[in-house]
């Protein structure tokens, strides 16, 4: 297979991957961010402590995370048809990709938001801020470097999932590699696809890391603040408090 034969195939598949991963990432972030924050807020000791809601969201997220993507995709076919009117093609693949991506991202968001120093939340409460203020002004901005890193991880996971989406006619680079490389023994095209995917993933990882690092360097940590309130100790520099009874 010559390059001129490969080129249109690669362009077509590249576009499909871009559409599938782009949209599903967007949806995963839009859906996963509030879910992840809710998981933290409704947890024991959280601002909106609610055991029932926490357990329900936690279970939904766990189920979403534990299902193999290919099974999720098949299981969701009815839903996909209801949303997009079809079960094949890139558009149809976006639905299961987004639904697979949401719990994945939500767990990462949960971890990132938990890392935010509880003292900052307390400070905003002491200023008269409500829960929404805490989310908007503290939790999201302070967790932003971690959230960027989580998004990078999610994009890369979704690129992996999108290869499976090829099996329902979603197209994309992964599907191209399977159809030509595996089914037609066109190993040349397969290796080109592999190389493109490898380069793309490296670039995404690099860009994500650089952004997260830039944000982190700007802010740094807020000094001596321990991130876990539980570890807060009151160790004085000197012991001036002593006297004879």
């Amino acid at each position: 297979m010559t390059w001129s034969e490969m080129q249109p195939l690669l362009e077509q598949a590249g576009q499909e991957t871009l559409i599938m991963v782009g949209w599903s990432t967007l949806l995963a972030v839009v859906g996963g961010l509030p879910l992840g924050i809710l998981l933290v807020l409704t947890d024991k000791g959280g601002l909106l402590q609610n055991t029932v809601v926490n357990k329900v969201i936690g279970q939904v997220v766990n189920i979403g995370r534990s299902l193999p993507f290919i099974i999720l995709m098949v299981a969701l076919m009815t839903f996909t048809r209801w949303v997009t009117g079809t079960t094949i093609g890139s558009e149809a693949a976006i639905v299961p990709l987004a639904i697979g991506g949401i719990p994945f991202f939500a767990r990462l968001v949960e971890t990132a938001v938990r890392e935010v120093d509880g003292g900052l939340v307390e400070a905003v409460q002491a200023m008269g801020g409500n829960t929404w203020t805490v989310v908007r002004k503290v939790l999201v901005p302070e967790a932003l470097p971690s959230l960027i890193a989580s998004t990078t991880t999610t994009i890369i996971a979704l690129i992996g999932y999108s290869a499976m989406a090829g099996t329902v006619g979603g197209g994309g680079l992964g599907d191209l590699a399977v159809r030509y490389g595996y089914n037609r023994f066109e190993s040349g095209l397969m290796w080109v696809t592999v190389a493109i995917l490898a380069v793309a993933i490296s670039l995404i990882q690099f860009a994500g890391d650089a952004t997260a690092r830039a944000l982190h360097r700007r802010g740094g940590r807020s000094g001596a603040a321990p991130r876990l309130r539980l570890l807060k100790t009151e160790e004085p520099a000197t012991a001036d408090v002593s006297k004879v009874a």
Binding site: A123, A126, M127, K137, G223
Partner: peptide, 30 residues
């Protein structure tokens, strides 16, 4: 009522993502 009571903390509790000025503006935003 809380917004009329100032509070300072042992570990400062400043937002690392904001500049000094923006940190001071936070209660005013609220």
């Amino acid at each position: 009522a809380r917004s009329r009571i100032g509070m300072v903390f042992q570990h400062f509790n400043l937002l690392s993502s904001r500049t000094v000025q923006d940190n001071i503006e936070l209660p005013l935003e609220i």
